[in-house]
Write a protein that binds this DNA or RNA. Sequence first.
DNA 1: TTGAAAGCGCTAACAC
DNA 2: GTGTTAGCGCTTTCAA
Lengths: 329, 329
Amino acid sequence: MSRTTIADVAREAGVTKATVSHALSGNRPTSEETRAKVLAAAEKLNWVPSQSARALATSRANTVAVVLARDPAVIANDSFFPAFIAGVESVLAETETGLLLQVVTDRAAEERAYRTLSHGRADGALLLDLRTDDWRVPFLDELGLPTVLVGAYDQPTDFSCVRTDDAAPVRELIAHLRAAGHQRIAHISGPLAYVHSRARADAYLAEVGTDELLREGDFTAASGRDLTEALLALPDRPTAILYSNDTMAIAGLSFARSQGLAIPRDLAISGFDDDHLSAHLSPALTSVSSDPAARGRAAARILRDVILGAQPRTEVVDSNVVHFRESTA
Amino acid sequence: MSRTTIADVAREAGVTKATVSHALSGNRPTSEETRAKVLAAAEKLNWVPSQSARALATSRANTVAVVLARDPAVIANDSFFPAFIAGVESVLAETETGLLLQVVTDRAAEERAYRTLSHGRADGALLLDLRTDDWRVPFLDELGLPTVLVGAYDQPTDFSCVRTDDAAPVRELIAHLRAAGHQRIAHISGPLAYVHSRARADAYLAEVGTDELLREGDFTAASGRDLTEALLALPDRPTAILYSNDTMAIAGLSFARSQGLAIPRDLAISGFDDDHLSAHLSPALTSVSSDPAARGRAAARILRDVILGAQPRTEVVDSNVVHFRESTA
DNA sequence: TTGAAAGCGCTAACAC
DNA sequence: GTGTTAGCGCTTTCAA
């Protein structure tokens, strides 16, 4: 830890701390001359203002947080998250705002984490993995921590949202499969407690009219495999399966092949989220790319504005694009 | 932001701020009775100590940082990073330490980021993607910021390291391929400026004895494809290719197939890093899993200890395991 | 246009 | 075992 403080810079420049502070922030008019002196002194001493001191004085941490209530192991297999974070960072970098990542494993820890955040550790938060009737939304509302919800939320809320239309690509996929002659189309969803899983499953149900071929997975390869096995064992088995992510789709595809089915001739398969490897598989996997980076950028921009005092707002990032590839050809 | 401060708690409990502070930290003996009063008051008021005030007073931020000097887009396609972060978090969570993620795009920003970190924003840093003769190592040394290098470093250093043996799996792969009769084994590396790419390429060279079939890629699918194309166009083309990551391997595999080659009959292929989808491809991709989460845990533990005053130390996480799958069968 | 001084909320000597 | 009192390094009134 370097010991250089604003006082050293002030001394070096022959002014007071206040002048240094203002010269750098531009918060009050400063003569060009002293400004130059201050900059030179700061440069010479390699001074960088202490974030903690600044945070205490301004009650702004220059940090936003993402709290993940997932098992750390699950994060590792998720193609959405890293791209999303990359998008967030690209906006935060503009203002030297840090991104605090906190992984919690139980509700008590999560509540405490949010409380700590709102007490000077962060200026705002991004909420992912929204669940139906999510307790975190009213909780954060009470804490008064600026927040942006990423993904649709099923209750009325005053918070900002970054939403996408998950129903449209599902409809598009089903229409495509029907045009190709498929009658029995199944869906393996993610956990239906998640709003986005629910939205996809609902779109499927609205289109297909029955939950006979709907199965609830948990986004893991294991569940993709097992549920595919169950569906294929049905007397009147589906000829196409829509999965709610690529991991489950690949696992399902592998299993189907191991049973001697040809893809897509005997079974058409589609994923969701468009993992970066999916286009390179053989057969290439049909999937829905959702441009997580764009959603990250939008969320970060909204949060930045809200922290600065703007009104909450909702943006629809309509970046969902169905990539039709060999697995449904 | 709630306005409750330690003073409110002290008043509520009928003691002074110091007592509250000590009762909670246990930094000095406190009678069971006052301790209970303090806890009750804190609980009642939902008080959480302000991180920024605490950070300023103790010059400890309770935060460690990872600075990524990569293009945000590259982060999105990396299977190592999220798993590594998950491992780091699992250790940090034990002590309510935050993880600050900072993505920078040029050297000036990176220097400034590290300077800011060492001035109260973080207590330590994790260094990834080490390059040959990396300028960051002496720089951080000068800043005096506790640091753990993740991956081998080619210069002598006083910093802690978490290393793995990347050479062994390369040797193992080559031995396996030779036993299967392969004579012309190629290697498509990552950028050789990275120490880990270099280590893999060196192991390859030591084993094969010539760089005739060594090509330097950049870990992207595009480079995997292009370099594979170039290798296959050779008069005496390789019959096996070792790639330095799975993304390049999959892209190469797809390209080879599109040229009518059967995998592994006409061309054996191996990746590196074992992406979670690789086992599910068809043919399943031979790869080297390196247990990034274990490396993250080790790095976080060492960093925590060093911050607390322990001597720097180096740990070898020998988690590299070659998974022989169909693509080299 | 600049200086002086108060204070952000906490911790840590130092007294008692 | 507990209270008193300085700061930590910055920002920001308030004067000059």
